[in-house]
Simulated assay, not measured.
Amino acid sequence: MITRTPIAVHCEEVEPEAPVSDTPLGDWQRQLRDVIRDPAALCRHLGLDFEWSSGARRGHDLFPVRVPLAYLSRIRRGDPNDPLLRQVLPLGAEGDAVRGFVDDPLEERDHTPKPGLIHKYPGRALLIASPTCAINCRYCFRRHFPYADNAPSMREWERTLDYLREDDSIREAILSGGDPLASPDRRLAALVERLEAIPHLKRLRIHTRLPVVIPDRVDDALLEWLGGSRLQKVMVLHINHAQEIDEAVVAACARLKAAGVTLLNQSVLLRGINDDVDTLAALSERLFEAGILPYYLHVLDPVSGAAHFDVPDDEARDLVDALRQRLAGFLIPRLVREVPGERSKTPL
């Protein structure tokens, strides 16, 4: 039996604001700017009354709320336990010190040879292409990452890219962040052009949540530089629940696939959000309908502030075993943990 801890929010008759879906969203950069930045405002939009406490305020102060309106429109009004709401609403538990949960759970600071570059695994290197995200997920393993020290200017990127030029064993460049697609297309196109000039690079991988949380991000300007790249293109989306995939997301994915982008998904197994077989099965089915292949199901990285999302390994294995009884093999993501110092993800 799975026990779900209710969020400290209760439903009341709250004077509703204008429905978000009735408000024209406009271009993606405006949507990126005009996000919900306050938990009380978030609850007002959803017809919820937030029982504000010093603990919840501390959670927000530790990692501020940030929710785009396009994502907000998929959260059910009046439901304090909505699985999308639980991913973005701070809790007092985020301020609790829990043994084993630390600021840098993957020890990335030990693998940052140049500003903006993380090199942990053979054959690929990761570039912090943007220090910002469109949405602040409460379980984010980089919620404490020193982005201020890893945000090179375009001129400084040349010194960082020298590291890739000098190591011909690196075949794949990974754009991450933050969210790399939070950067303007002009900046991303210039960076990718420099990557394309490195002859031993074969693939470009982009880890992003933006096509999910702001589907309008997949516009003509993005598709022009991405579709025109000589590099093989892989985009790893981050979707934890089938409810995140609306028709706008499906349309954005179709445009990416038409531009020659392979779409994969990685999810995080999260207590109270997707820790049951029905939810995981529905997610895999919905992903495949949208042209996205389930790739990884990560157990939670032990980052401080997120211990309340943790699902034990044995329970995670049981869930994936149950998925195997219901789904075709290609719909079952690989259950993995990222272990600092290992040369690849560790299967569970």
Rank of each mutant, 00 (worst) to 15 (best):
D167F: 04
Q243D: 08
V213I: 01
S229I: 13
E158D: 09
K202A: 10
R209I: 00
H238G: 03
L195P: 11
S229N: 08
A242K: 09
R165N: 06
A148G: 08
R187M: 07
P180H: 04
D216V: 03
P211W: 14
A148V: 14
L222Y: 05
R205L: 00
L175P: 00
K202Q: 15
R186N: 14
F141M: 06
D220Y: 09
T160C: 12
H200D: 09
G178Y: 03
P152I: 06
S229D: 04
D185M: 03
H207Q: 14
R203E: 13
D149I: 08
K233D: 01
D246W: 04
A251N: 05
N150Q: 11
R165P: 01
H238Q: 10
E172I: 14
N136C: 11
I239A: 07
P184R: 10
L210A: 14
I206H: 09
E244K: 05
P180Y: 07
H144M: 03
A189W: 02
L201M: 06
P215R: 04
F141P: 01
S183F: 11
D168N: 10
I214A: 07
V213Q: 02
Y147D: 15
A197R: 15
P180M: 09
L231S: 06
D162Q: 08
L161G: 06
E172C: 11
A190N: 06
L191C: 00
R186Y: 04
Y147L: 15
V236S: 01
L188Y: 13
L210D: 04
I135F: 03
M154F: 10
Y147M: 14
R165W: 11
R171Q: 15
C137G: 04
D185S: 11
R159M: 05
P184I: 13
H144A: 10
R194W: 01
I135D: 03
E156T: 02
D246C: 11
R143K: 15
N150A: 05
W225Q: 07
R143S: 05
R186T: 13
I214G: 09
H207L: 06
